[in-house]
């Protein structure tokens, strides 16, 4: 995100500032360690776990516009010794959408985005952080935090998908270990959004969108990807 999608990070930063937060970006930060750990090398990623804790322990909240990183910190930092610092960091690391709705408790935003949008529910956010109710759990309410936030945006129309929460096929190392299925899954997701008239696919995770954008670009499909923070940040004060 830092290197390839700075616009999503900038939108997150600006949005939090506008909402009155005192925001800092600790410049020594690196990676939560998820890529290595998901590839089976949790032991090798311990150093980056500890570095993450050191970097962020002094903050009240650690906000990331990335459900999968947040999920990793909250769920997989359980392999560290549970010091006070580790416990605090795990508890206070939140996805942007959780932070906006559960901590800041915003109920409206002056954002405007007059487009037809398809929402991709990134799996770690949806099924890991329970930002919404997955389609498998049919007996609970289904509105997700992302839906709730997008409903505040003026002019935005959400398209109804055939498969509202199927995985995009990125999956970190999966995308290169099983490239054929990974791409096929991505193609199928894009087709679902495109055939419903979406101009833009949004999500809470840039990694899913990077994968989808890679396929969109290769196949010249007239649809764009945009991080949800960029949609929510479409206003000035």
């Amino acid at each position: 995100m830092d290197q390839f999608y700075p616009q999503a990070a900038i939108a997150t930063y600006k949005l939090l500032l506008k909402l009155g937060c005192d925001v800092a970006y600790p410049e020594g930060q690196t990676c939560c360690g998820q890529p290595l750990a998901n590839a089976g090398n949790e032991a090798a990623s311990k150093g980056s776990y500890l570095h993450f804790v050191t970097m962020f322990e002094k903050y009240d909240y650690i906000v990331a516009p990335s459900g999968s990183c947040v999920y990793h910190v909250r769920h997989h930092f359980d392999t560290l010794e549970q010091t006070e610092a580790v416990k605090k960091v795990r508890a206070k690391t939140l996805d942007l959408t959780e932070f906006l709705l559960d901590v800041l408790q915003i109920s409206s935003l002056p954002a405007k985005y007059p487009h037809k949008v398809g929402l991709h529910q990134s799996c770690h956010g949806l099924r890991g952080l329970h930002l919404g109710t997955s389609s498998e759990l049919v007996n609970k309410p289904v509105a997700s935090k992302l839906h709730e936030l997008l409903s505040m945006v003026e002019g935005l129309t959400l398209v109804e998908l055939d498969r509202k929460d199927e995985c995009c096929g990125f999956g970190g190392t999966f995308s290169v270990k099983e490239p054929d299925i990974s791409v096929k899954m991505g193609k199928d997701r894009i087709r679902d959004h495109f055939s419903k008239g979406a101009e833009v696919i949004t999500a809470g995770d840039m990694s899913c969108l990077m994968h989808l954008e890679g396929i969109i670009s290769r196949q010249n499909i007239p649809i764009k990807v945009i991080h949800i923070a960029e949609i929510l940040n479409t206003y000035e004060i």
């Binding site: 290197q3 791409v183 890679g214």
Partner: peptide, 15 residues
């Protein structure tokens, strides 16, 4: 990665 996918377009500056 790039067999069937493009890489993201690299921006001028990082965040």
């Amino acid at each position: 990665w790039t067999k069937d996918r493009d890489l993201p377009k690299a921006p001028v500056e990082s965040f």
